[in-house]
Design a protein around this nucleic acid. Structure first.
Lengths: 182, 182
DNA sequence: ATCACTATACCGACTAGTCGGTTTCTTGAA
DNA sequence: TTCAAGAAACCGACTAGTCGGTATAGTGAT
């Protein structure tokens, strides 16, 4: 079969939707704009996705798949799970963070399904971190820290990082937290 | 003169805009919906605000004023500033947090001015916390923690809190952070 | 002939903003 | 005391434009 290296039209459409959500927000993510960015006509879009809800469902499926991968990585190396979780929040260019951000845009637009999906993902991360770390307060601290980093990144969109999310600072903060006794 | 306790129409319009943004998102915050909620007609709205941008500017002014108040409180008691900052992130019903959340909805919709304003506010909080706490890494940690709490709250809208933002948990986390040696 | 589209036209719902008109309150001259 | 004139606050119908969705005729490759 030799699956093509070039992304399929379906993938490109989801990519386009995701990219527009991240960089320009929900309002701008119209069917015309998505089709244009994906390099197809509007008819081409509706050929693959009968409605915008179907396209959104595909974006949700992508997030679920990426989160599953991420959870597998954390489960594979429990000792690094907490550090990995915090640090990966910084990597706003990663497929997971970009997809997460896109769904977050929808959630902030108060799309109920997007909110539910994000809550579900957070629960999964919490469970895996609990298995890896053991201490519940520590897990809350780690997740809140990750959320804070992520929130800062999401506000600036694709633009320049504010000082808060400087990787070196995060490294030092992780070091500080590591010194906490329980 | 005896200034009325009942909020003016202008205030009610900004209230309505803010409330709809927080609980239903940017898309739902139409001029009609805002006017309806404020108890005036659309004409009544446009009498006070010539455009939606003007209404948004009034919301921004409100946030600036509330942040100034908040900064004054922190400056008045530097020893409690960090704890105050983290804990007040939990109080999603406070005028400041609600207004902040409304502007955040616009920022997530990638409104450039909203992003700029939020960045400006964060800088001010950072400066005041630096004066109060001294250690830069500690200030970053405190702010990221506050952002994480705030982000969790903003995702759930006005709904029930997820476990992460349970006040007792936050108290314990603040306690843990207080044990860090520099 | 089927698949994966292109291109274009269209509809109904909705949205920001406009505009003529109405009500209510105040003011100041006859 | 009355009343005309303004001004402030507000109403609601209308316009122009946008968006999601539908429909349809056509194209080129397999």
């Amino acid at each position: 079969m030799l699956m093509g290296h070039a992304p399929s039209t379906v993938q490109r459409l989801v990519d386009a939707y995701q990219d527009i959500l991240v960089s320009d927000g929900e309002r701008t993510a119209t069917l015309d704009a998505i089709a244009l960015r994906a390099g197809v006509s509007k008819g081409g879009l509706t050929y693959h996705f009968k409605s915008k809800d179907e396209l959104t469902a595909a974006l949700f499926d992508r997030l679920r798949a990426l989160v599953d991968e991420d959870l597998a990585v954390m489960r594979a190396e429990p000792a690094q799970a907490a550090t990995y979780y915090v640090k990966s929040s910084l990597d706003v260019e990663s497929p997971l963070e970009r997809c997460n951000m896109a769904v977050t845009r929808l959630a902030q637009g108060v799309h109920p399904d997007a909110n539910e999906l994000l809550a579900e993902c957070r629960t999964q991360w919490f469970t895996v971190l609990m298995d890896a770390v053991g201490n519940e307060d520590m897990v809350h601290l780690v997740m809140l820290l990750g959320d804070g980093i992520y929130f800062n990144a999401s506000l600036t969109g694709t633009g320049a990082m504010p000082e808060e999310t400087d990787p070196a600072t995060i490294d030092r903060i992780i070091g500080l937290i590591g010194t906490i006794d329980f």
